[in-house]
């Protein structure tokens, strides 16, 4: 039996809560939003429908450009300026929808090259790449 060969019990690591099945993380009442999301989707103009429409259109235009920039960044070397004067470069892979984490490859750290890594956006001050 497999169970008899396991001498040490393995501690259960509690992972951060992922998005629940139905929400995309933007619903202010979703557990993910409350746990992680800065409420940048805060709207001041909910009372006026026309004004809200205008705001939503603005939001769409801004978001689309940002998402396209992330697409353009895929596979390119990107240099990240982190807090505490840390500067690293890596090949950009992907971002999650609420821009909380970046997945990168070939991360050049002062200690060596990390093949695959996830960078927390809360640790990053800025990033740049050439187009």
């Amino acid at each position: 039996m497999q169970a008899s060969t396991m001498k040490m019990p393995v501690a259960v690591v509690r992972l951060p809560r992922g998005p629940d099945g139905t929400s995309r993380g933007f619903d202010p009442s979703s557990p993910r939003f409350q746990a992680l999301g800065p409420s940048s989707l805060f709207s001041k103009v909910t009372a006026n429908a026309a004004e809200l429409e205008r705001e939503q259109q603005g939001r769409v235009a801004l978001r689309e450009r940002y998402l396209r920039s992330l697409l353009a960044m895929v596979g390119r070397p990107v240099s990240f300026t982190m807090y505490e004067k840390v500067s690293v470069t890596a090949l950009f892979g992907a971002s999650d929808i609420d821009v909380l984490n970046f997945q990168v490859s070939e991360l050049q750290t002062p200690l060596g090259v990390q093949k695959e890594a996830v960078l927390r956006c809360s640790d990053i001050v800025a990033y740049s790449f050439e187009l």
Partner: peptide, 12 residues
């Protein structure tokens, strides 16, 4: 300024 991401407020 190319855009400001409305979710994260990142300035591009």
């Amino acid at each position: 300024v190319l855009t400001v991401d409305p979710v994260s407020a990142n300035i591009l």
